[in-house]
Write a protein that binds this DNA or RNA. Sequence first.
DNA 1: GATCCATGATAAAAGCTTTTAGCAGAAAAA
DNA 2: TTTTTCTGCTAAAAGCTTTTATCATGGATC
Lengths: 338, 338
Amino acid sequence: MKNTGDRRRTIYDVAKAAGVSISTASNALNGTGRTNAETRERVRRVAEEIGFRPNALARGLLSKRSHAIGMLTNDTYGRLTLPMAAGVSEVLVDHGVSVFLCATNNDPRLAQLHLEALLDRQVDGIIFTATRLDLEPPVQLSRLPIPVVYVFAEGPADSVTFFPDDEQGARLAVDHLKELGRSRILHITGPKDYLAARIRAQSYLDACGDGAEAMFGDWSEEWGHEAVQTVFARPGPKPDAIFCGSDEIARGVIDALRDLNVEIPTDVAVVGFDNWEVVARQTRPPLTTIDMELKELGHRAGLAILSLSKGEPVPAGITRLPCRLVVRQSCGSPLQSD
Amino acid sequence: MKNTGDRRRTIYDVAKAAGVSISTASNALNGTGRTNAETRERVRRVAEEIGFRPNALARGLLSKRSHAIGMLTNDTYGRLTLPMAAGVSEVLVDHGVSVFLCATNNDPRLAQLHLEALLDRQVDGIIFTATRLDLEPPVQLSRLPIPVVYVFAEGPADSVTFFPDDEQGARLAVDHLKELGRSRILHITGPKDYLAARIRAQSYLDACGDGAEAMFGDWSEEWGHEAVQTVFARPGPKPDAIFCGSDEIARGVIDALRDLNVEIPTDVAVVGFDNWEVVARQTRPPLTTIDMELKELGHRAGLAILSLSKGEPVPAGITRLPCRLVVRQSCGSPLQSD
DNA sequence: GATCCATGATAAAAGCTTTTAGCAGAAAAA
DNA sequence: TTTTTCTGCTAAAAGCTTTTATCATGGATC
């Protein structure tokens, strides 16, 4: 009895089967208008029986809200994007909102194509997300008829934007090292033209004061390796802790330290950044690092675009979400483990 | 003049501005029906001028084709999924088809919710993709009114399914090693309950014959490390090449070999599997490995679902797409580089 | 008995597009 | 001149849902 035919059941079928008009059927199903409790129950039962599900297209056409949003990303690699996207999708599915995934590959033509498709589909909003690169959106997003939320990317002045709190994250790392009694902390991080790298470095410098040194390079293991070799080859005091700008860098650092027969964490403690599990768990010793709470970032971005699409106000400007310290063994806190 | 108002332009606006009826406007824009060349041009120009874009919801409502598909994945981690999804999205955007991303986290409730949402949205098809785990879909997909394509996951007997050609990939690795003169090849791979691991191992055994040995463990660096230690600790001849089931395992293998002062590739050549760039490029020496052509897999899956949704026939059964050998330096072919 | 009100239902419109059937006029054929 | 055939265009319907305005009925009030 449950939708055996080929055609999808419409509200018209429900109405006929329940012996009411389509308006009554609609009212009964949605709890709108005035309906007798008994009728309402009957309609609902019938709808359930014949397997009726409202057509989202028709609904959206009328209500001008498609209950779908677009997620425009240029991060094809996905280390940051996918966990974030999963967070968005997770929080929105319970509100009946679906997510279009649009990978632009940094190609403006593709971005434009995707954007137009999204607008044609009447999406209720767009989440734009980029890699950490300080790129501007590959397409004009500022004068759109629908709200836009930025994650990992900066929009126009009054836009709603989410970032991890790089400053707090860096402080978390430095404080942890200080609490463990380390005093000569070195910072090895990515390219200076990444805003995130600059912010973390500044936070580190502010916290460590005199003698602090931030080495900029790139986000690779190789750079971590190279930086350590440089530091340990030159004269002068050696660091007793290294705060790295990414887990990959930390991995290179740890490798280089082992090559130099430096004990971790006894001689040098190491903290990473990202909590990229595949890397962080596989270093020896397992890496203490900073988690950017990507999923939570996705949740917040999802809720923000949801509110905006309903016309509810959302505080504009950059919201920075706190990072979390994940203690493993590279700093010598063997009591706690992950 | 370009859509300054708040309301979206409809075909009604175009018709009025061009001084024709909406049917003529529609015909002119779509090149259907009979229209005078001159009128057609005028309508198109006007549409362009006022910034008209057809409402995909209305269009889909009528045509019963939403030009959207759903991608259901339980791979929240995303190493395999996102590149594949990017391939799907890339190939479909040019056909005007958008992709809903649905992350199920292996939660049946979530999967069901997503599936219902997709059906309500009248998607033209669904791509189901899983991790390599031999899990069955978290939700009933077999009796759907729309086509389903499986990637990295096996569907019912007569379904359309795409996999990388694990057998050919493994052979590629072994052949490469043999061509370089290696004869005592060892295989270190993931858990035996992964079909992909079994297939690759079997292919390896078939190619190497006597003396070949496949060690199953898990997909971790640690396991690669451990396996090498075991092999080099026991008596008997040592391998002169190791074919690994994943790049992570290869990484562990390389680390362990270096700890043992075994030269790579002089003493032992190493081949990985995945071409996961972050890992493969960062090993020292950079890893020669097998690329599963995830993007191409996405392309093919996208085109398949497109054809199916149009009612065009697509050969059922499992299609295995060839892998590609990526030569770096871990096998000692310094001539070619990546 | 006439008036008013509340209740529960319904018809019709709106949302935007595409498609079908049909109409008016001109050119061609009889 | 009358009939047929094109040509270019249009009115209307269909697709499915929600919402607005309206209607019928029965009970309460005067």
